[in-house]
Design a protein around this nucleic acid. Sequence first.
DNA 1: AGCCAGGCTACCG
DNA 2: CGGTAGCATGGC
Length: 205
Amino acid sequence: MMNKILELYNELLELYGLQGWWPIKGVYHKENYSYPRNEQEQFEVIIGAILTQNTAWTNVETAIENLRNIKCVDAEQILATSKEKIREAIKPAGYFNQKTDYLVNIAWFYKQLNGKTPTREELLAVKGVGNETADSIMLYAYNQPEFIVDAYTKRLLTKKGLITGKESYEAIKILFEKNLPKDVKLFQEYHALIVEEGKKNSITS
DNA sequence: AGCCAGGCTACCG
DNA sequence: CGGTAGCATGGC
């Protein structure tokens, strides 16, 4: 018999279908997992992961478009641009003072990687990158099998009675990873489905 | 007119 | 360690 974590995945998949995350240039590439296709797209995923911290994705889209207009969906360009300009561009995403610093930090980090794939620990050492952002970057920018735990995930698992809600980030992450095959596509779709479910169901359901 | 959104850091006990 | 204030915009 299947475990509850895998059952939940199949239930969500049945409900919502394949999601095809992460959106690039506002587009969800359903049933195509060859993204990101180049460094520009990879870096777009990374800045999106930072900008979406506690922020609605629609606001992030606007911020990324503003950054695109000033050629700053690019690590070198961010480092060559004044913080004031970046701050203005990402204003719609909120927390713009913090996030400007975070973007500069990740730009330095990305540049020194010189094309290498970072470890999760290296990402966590960047100020502005916490557990969820690190896992989002690993899973969607680098296609590494790290399961993402977010507010929707905790809420859904609590509602399903699979956790109490008091577990740590790490504990919930491990719960998923030990009950699922270590499959990047599966991890990508599962998190996307959880977000879809979270968006469609109000806080009080 | 609040409350919420794909969190993180700093600081407290 | 766990708990929480502060950060900020836009949509409903």
